[in-house]
Design a protein around this nucleic acid. Sequence first.
DNA 1: TATTGTTATACTCTATAACTATA
DNA 2: TATAGTTATAGAGTATAACAATA
Lengths: 171, 171
Amino acid sequence: MVDDEPKDGAVPVLDSTPPLRSVGFTISATGYAIARTFKEILAPLQLEPREFSLLRAVGAAEGQSQQTIGERLQIPSSRMVAFVDALEARGLLQRRQNPDDRRARALFLTEDGHELLERSFTAAAGHELNLTGELSPEERDQLLALLEKVGNRLGLAGGNSGRGHPALADE
Amino acid sequence: MVDDEPKDGAVPVLDSTPPLRSVGFTISATGYAIARTFKEILAPLQLEPREFSLLRAVGAAEGQSQQTIGERLQIPSSRMVAFVDALEARGLLQRRQNPDDRRARALFLTEDGHELLERSFTAAAGHELNLTGELSPEERDQLLALLEKVGNRLGLAGGNSGRGHPALADE
DNA sequence: TATTGTTATACTCTATAACTATA
DNA sequence: TATAGTTATAGAGTATAACAATA
């Protein structure tokens, strides 16, 4: 990490060697601010980011089992219960019986769930548009390409395909 | 956020309108991975990222009061107690009396504290070097400049000067 | 009366593992 | 015997507010 603003004489350690502004720190801090802002944007919809991720995962392929979705998002089964409970209690999704396996619960969005997911996407798109407001289309592509080079060093799949935000898995 | 990999027909909402890969999601996910990796890098030193931030803040200006440092890092006073307790118990920093105000505790690093902080800086620099391994110096500057443009939209100060990582403040 | 730091309490979140019903 | 989902329990982390010493 290493901070960007070296303090005077108190910490003589790395103030000369490393770059003045750290890429790691900057990405991390910016990413954190983005996540916080996104949370604020979802708040009026009464949705937490992880609930949005869950709704999105269900909506992306309805009828999958609770466990399948939990595995994709890397959420342990016991945590899934509470999450699904809350969204079901609000009438946003449903657990239905799977005729092939009566142990499994097939997840579906309700009408309200689809509607709220749609509004969330709109809000997210607005957020994205705001974030990139100072970037030309070329700069935007550049930025993504450069971030991918950093991501390569972290073992991140190019598109982060399928999986949700890594913060969901925690650790 | 909007994901990067639009799902087939199930979620027809924004699959056409927005860019395929979201800047917000990518920065956030990359930043999260960076923070997680940094945590792993500090682990052998038995230091958590926030403990590193605290040590660094103390080392940057020794003798400041616990409250002053807590305010800079945006850590509430009651949390500071436990953090400082832990580091003091490990002999990394000291609370000393302030002759001018006997309520306040002036914080200083011990010899061991300085040493560990130095090793942490070295580890952090190695992390940074690894992250930027695929970037030329020009690309690195480009990336920082582009991130700053995004940060402008989030009200982030250019250098994030003084303050630590925003994750410390939480919310 | 206000402020620095500490302690006590309650609350939220999570992980773990036991449990049920099906397979 | 194994698996999908649920429930129970205990632990960590935090915020809030009460508190003691000093200003």
